[in-house]
Design a binder for these strands. Sequence first.
DNA 1: CTTCATATTGTCCTTTGGGGCAGTGACATG
DNA 2: CATGTCACTGCCCCAAAGGACAATATGAAG
Lengths: 207, 207
Amino acid sequence: MPGLVHVVDDDASFRTAIERRLKLAGYDVKTYASAQDLLDAAPDDEQPGCILLDVRIPGLSGPELQSRLIAAGSTLPIIFLTGHADTPTTVQAIKAGAEDFLTKPVSSELLLDAIARALARQDAARSQRGKLEAFRVHLATLTQRERQVFDLIVRGKINKQIAYELGTTERTVKAHRHQVMEKMRVHSLAELVSIAERLGMLDSNSG
Amino acid sequence: MPGLVHVVDDDASFRTAIERRLKLAGYDVKTYASAQDLLDAAPDDEQPGCILLDVRIPGLSGPELQSRLIAAGSTLPIIFLTGHADTPTTVQAIKAGAEDFLTKPVSSELLLDAIARALARQDAARSQRGKLEAFRVHLATLTQRERQVFDLIVRGKINKQIAYELGTTERTVKAHRHQVMEKMRVHSLAELVSIAERLGMLDSNSG
DNA sequence: CTTCATATTGTCCTTTGGGGCAGTGACATG
DNA sequence: CATGTCACTGCCCCAAAGGACAATATGAAG
């Protein structure tokens, strides 16, 4: 599996050494001397890739960069690679979703294994998101009113109740309902509810 | 939040010291000199509690015990507490779902925080399971035929199609459908689909 | 002012879903 | 054999959903 590895480390000689090893293994590589450099570059989330990140770097630390990326919605897998690992940092990084936490010097085998896993995981996550994303796109085309109707439909309300709650008539609800089914590209209530559930819109149910 | 803490450590004096500290904090404590002792005791999964586990113990190691417990379906949260933590072990333990990985000597604050988090997490997981469990119980009361009808209903099939696929009549399907709604204790198709989705019965959809 | 999207509503008709009432047939169990 | 469960089904009726055809009203955009 090919992919782009973003290497963040303040040690220039380490960057070139790693870059050489990774390119030999068939990966594309971009290097950054600091966390801020990577943030500025804003790496593409959708392209196959991962981040190889040193913990101790001037400016933003590795874990701090991880938080920023998560907060920014990035889903690029992160592999930490550091000279000296302390337990709390390791635990925190893995809990926050890092793919792995390796210590220098690292064997090529361990490193390439971790990268392969990271890319595989990103791929799985991406295709997962892709499916939901299609639904989100459709959902975004709904007007306010259609969206309200959508919400009530998937909670099992019948047209009569929906009309009452929205202060309109049953006929109007039917019109919106038709639009919802059309725009969401589904042909049955079951599909609609299934999508809503997967998008996490049905966490607390009523009757 | 009260709870039962299972302490696994081969050092008898450490066990009594920890036991004293935890009891002071209001927890019930059971101690075990080895991983096998805990496996033999088969701690209750549903009761509030967690496991405080040393990595290096004679016989089964901490991580090995963790694997066994996971394989056995246990959901008791595990907190590792060890004298010397190496990075790969730490990473593996957290990835496998350990609540935390602490090093001796541990401050009461860190330890009690970790235990509180573990109990909170277990509580959330348990209530989550509880809801689904109720649905599973209802699902189990369905007859074979009702179950078949259920599967087709939540995939968006209409009675006419269901009747055709099962080689019966629409009226019969209606009868089964009625039984399904009754037994599953729902009042709308939306609820039924929502439940099916949560039980993971709708992973691959057709039209 | 014209055009377009949105929201609204009505009438009329068909298809689906839901259910009452009633009855048949298979099969297991006591 | 008596009882009970499960599956199956017909007739009839009502409620709910879906859609065709038509029309009004409002506000934003060009």
